[in-house]
Design a protein around this nucleic acid. Sequence first.
DNA 1: GGGGGACGCCAACGGCCGTTGGCCTAGACT
DNA 2: AGTCTAGGCCAACGGCCGTTGGCGTCCCCC
Lengths: 194, 194
Amino acid sequence: MQPTDTAPGGRPRRSDATRAAILDAARERFASDGYERATIRAIARDAGIDPSMVMRYYGNKEGLFAAASEFDLRLPDLAAVPREEAGAVLVGHFLERWEEDGALTALLRVGVTNPAGAERMRAVFQEQVAPAVAAVCPDPDRAGVRAALVASQILGMAVSRYVLRFPPAAGMPRAEAVAWLAPTVQRYLTAGSP
Amino acid sequence: MQPTDTAPGGRPRRSDATRAAILDAARERFASDGYERATIRAIARDAGIDPSMVMRYYGNKEGLFAAASEFDLRLPDLAAVPREEAGAVLVGHFLERWEEDGALTALLRVGVTNPAGAERMRAVFQEQVAPAVAAVCPDPDRAGVRAALVASQILGMAVSRYVLRFPPAAGMPRAEAVAWLAPTVQRYLTAGSP
DNA sequence: GGGGGACGCCAACGGCCGTTGGCCTAGACT
DNA sequence: AGTCTAGGCCAACGGCCGTTGGCGTCCCCC
């Protein structure tokens, strides 16, 4: 019988360090290379173990990606900040989060190329972004549209700045990016329909 | 000697139909599958010819992509429209262009995963988007930043709507998307720095 | 009407990939 | 102390890929 991949409620396993090393390497490779070019062999080499270990612990490449791209945006509760600062808080949080966690770039890169990755991004959008937006928007039945608009602006800046690296976007200080984007997001969040 | 891949100034070649079929199939495959999963074999099958023909005419896969992703955004002259409508015109043009030409999605998909694709997107940005934006922005020395902001919003909507297909973004009528995005882009184009 | 080049297909090569199964080892539990 | 199992490596398989070279064939031009 294979070692069960039980929930982390159980006792620590002897292989936990290896599992973590694999996940770290996988996130980095997926982020920099995308799904297809991030090979299991390269990930295993980075983690200092044999490729077959990856298969044993995560089943197959798809399972590895699913595990590596599981993460929490840790979105702030927008209802708890002054209403007119929600846009700035949200943009600042996202850019900060993006710079500290390679999994976000990994998910974006894979989501654009791979159907399973796209599905996971839709899930993150629906389960994390949409509810956070709904907490402050004036018309709850249109919260989905507002959330999509917010996502479009933030994703677009992430693509321009961290993935395609358009020089003006990549070179802009984060504070300047926040200052430009905040009014946009604020309008998407709270302003009346155009 | 191989058939020369001379500029299209020369006489029409007997193989022009084949070349065009290859390019059409390539654009479609690159758009839907991305660079790595779009195989030369599949493209050749779609075009109804042998894979070796692709190599003969385009050298290698990278050359094929370069040829398939050569295109013109056909951006309007923003100086010729009323100043306060520039944002709406630009957004409307982009979304329309995106829906009619698969090469845009292809370039986006490949640009996110492939270094050569990213380089080509940077070139398109610098040679086509930046000059068009510079024609209306009040501070020409900061035109690059404004162009990057415009690109971030439009790219983000394209990603959300055409690639990741977030339901609210994909289902939104184009006119509604334009109405929401136009003020944002207008501000990036002409408003004072925040 | 004959020759030569453009056009097209076929078959194959080498390489890398995901994945599998067997074997050894060392630690944990009784 | 002895056993048993999880942890780890090694070697290999089958498949698909990009790419190459050779061989017919048809069209164009002299």
